[in-house]
Design a protein around this nucleic acid. Structure first.
Lengths: 366, 366
DNA sequence: GTCGTTGCTGGTAGCGCTGTCAACGATCCT
DNA sequence: AGGATCGTTGACAGCGCTACCAGCAACGAC
């Protein structure tokens, strides 16, 4: 435990500097801004660091520089497949950068989000990624006062706190319903679970499209606050069918529900799409291999996460993006479950259905 | 920018101490070990901290105390549902504790794992959770030299580095095959993807069970290094069927593959379970609502993550668990897809199938 | 040739907190 | 009653790094 000069075998910046024959501060600069060093010293420090196996002490760095290299990420759920894709994108983009990801789960509670936000902000993160646009007033104020870049993900809307990347759930839902109209469906039910703000906006989109066509009826909508699941999809569909036996299509707020509806149809020997068409949301992998293959609205989740983190890192380093709001769009992927030609076997994804479209919308949907 | 004594409005421990009328070190102790303070000072510091809205500076704390309050978690995949359940458990257990989770993705590469481990260890984490028991020799050495508690999760095996929590994939696979034997199946195929060490051990279990029954044939095994997916399940099953048209059952290394096999059967109009029985692995939520419902091997993923983190935190705080190795077991959940009585509609989970069992095994499976 | 400019380097002084150890009063024991 | 013990408190000295600013050489402009 001889701790006077050499310390307990630990390699500090001072050791690297000594070996390289420079001052500690110069060695420090090598890691912070190598361009500022002369080439000679740069290589000397570099090889000294490598030789000693130097690893910087992040705590000391954070303390001295008064900022951390942590990107805080607030998402509402770890279970939801949708977020695991987004997260993967975020982690991929952060890899190789100096920033590390600090993840927290709001459990779909904006109060919990506010609490976590306060916690995060106190640690002076380098940047923040938050989900959605529905924060408490308090959260909103904290975000606006934060002196770090912030990206809101998952959806776009007016008044971004800083940057924003996502798509319009409202428009996506309208497009899904329009697709069903194009297939000649009229009595289109809506099945939704959890009813977080984004699902709510999908419902809003559905309602508006139905109203536009003069086909909206309240009893066509079945929702619950319960977390989503395949089983729940079957249960909600059962309810829906009891209310409206003449149903000819179901728009599901996500793919798990859609799969549940498909299984329930099979259980009841209801023909899909002959009797009932099914459209899901997110286009998870299994949708393309279900029997029949399931139509869904594709969203670019991985790309969203990756781009969000990349934008954030750029902004942290002072290179703000030209466009603070990015609309990643969506695409209705028409498959057998909603085809008007039931026996149609053409490739699902690239099928040129009339409703296939990739839109790039303005930030708000009015 | 007046930074001489009061600093830029920041609340430091010194401010709290001053307001409370104690020395900074006493205030510090309040957060570290409140029991050591007299009740009077404790309440004084507490109210002072609350009044000022004091938030400790973690960087300073880490620097001064030479340790962090970070739990490092190394998992091989963020996409896999299995890990999202485990992660949820880990995050749930860490919530409310002083520890924060630092997650890294090894992408199923033990070299990447080694690299990340080195990175983590350099930051002196409070504890570490690593996936599986197959580390490089170098990683193993680092783990053993680490001066923090470590939990290996997902499976159990001999020679734990420190603590270990999981179950025997080998035994679980044997149980699944035994269940199929009990249903009168003989030509049982194996379908596996990714073939990480745990899937490999499931294969080993399958092979040994088949050999024990004198039924093993190499052509019954179809595997690929490709990441798993529902679609892949269908494709691998197609291969399997081409090699062995008389197949009467398929044991899938995971549930996604099983779902793919189910869809493929439907596509080919193969009766499940009349012609072919299907058994999956993990018992994801959708297995119970598929048509027919799908038999699977239930694993306690959420509990595994939660217990792992809880054990780790206990160990960090000096309370080592009585048993360093915890076997969470598994359970074959018999459902319609593997029933010998195809039209059987009894509840899937609690069905008293002969192969239903919850085992608690010794740490290794020899 | 002198002056200012630029580019690079180093010294000083903390960042906010906690480990160590000494000091203090109160309680306990003989 | 005196000393030992315990529980509680505070002073001091950094933890390893970087912000700030000064210094110095090399260079170009006049």
């Amino acid at each position: 435990m001889g701790r006077k000069r050499t310390k307990s075998g630990k390699i500090r910046l001072a050791e690297v500097a000594e070996l390289a024959g420079v001052s500690p501060i110069t060695a420090s600069r090598f890691f912070r801004n190598p361009e500022a060093l002369s080439v000679a010293k740069r290589t000397r420090v570099e090889s000294a660091a490598k030789e000693l196996g130097y690893v910087p002490n992040l705590a000391a760095r954070a303390l001295a520089s008064q900022r951390t290299e942590v990107i805080g990420v607030l998402i509402p759920s770890l279970t939801n497949n949708v977020f695991s894709d987004v997260l993967r994108g975020i982690y991929d983009a952060s890899e190789g950068s100096r920033y590390s990801i600090q993840l927290s789960n709001t459990r779909y509670s904006i109060l919990q989000e506010e609490k976590l936000l306060r916690l995060f902000l106190a640690q002076k993160p380098a940047g923040l990624i938050v989900t959605g646009i529905d924060q408490t007033a308090e959260s909103r104020a904290m975000l606006e006062a934060a002196d770090c870049p912030i990206v809101q993900i998952m959806e776009i809307g007016p008044n971004p706190v800083d940057m924003m990347i996502g798509f319009s759930h409202y428009d996506a839902a309208r497009a899904a319903v329009a697709h069903l109209f194009a297939q000649g469906r009229r009595k289109i039910g809506f099945v939704g679970a959890r009813m977080d703000p984004r699902v709510q906006r999908r419902l809003d989109g559905y309602v508006s499209a139905m109203k536009d066509a003069g086909l909206f009826e309240q009893r066509l909508v079945v929702t619950t606050a319960t977390p989503t699941s395949v089983t729940l999809g079957g249960a909600l569909f059962t309810d829906l069918l009891a209310r409206e036996p003449d149903l000819d299509a179901v728009f599901c707020a996500n793919d798990d529900l859609a799969l549940g509806v498909l299984f329930e149809c099979r259980r009841r020997e209801i023909g899909v799409p002959e009797q009932i068409a099914i459209v899901g949301f997110n286009d998870l992998e299994f949708m393309a291999s279900a029997v029949p293959t399931l139509t869904s609205v594709r969203t670019n989740r991985y790309e969203m996460g990756k781009t969000a983190a990349a934008m954030l890192i750029e902004a942290i380093e002072g290179r703000r993006p030209e466009l603070p709001v990015l609309d990643l769009g969506f695409k209705v992927i028409e498959r057998q479950s909603s085809s008007s030609r039931p026996s149609d076997n053409r490739p699902a994804v690239s099928g040129g259905g009339t409703a296939n479209k990739m839109v790039a919308l303005p930030s708000s949907h009015d």
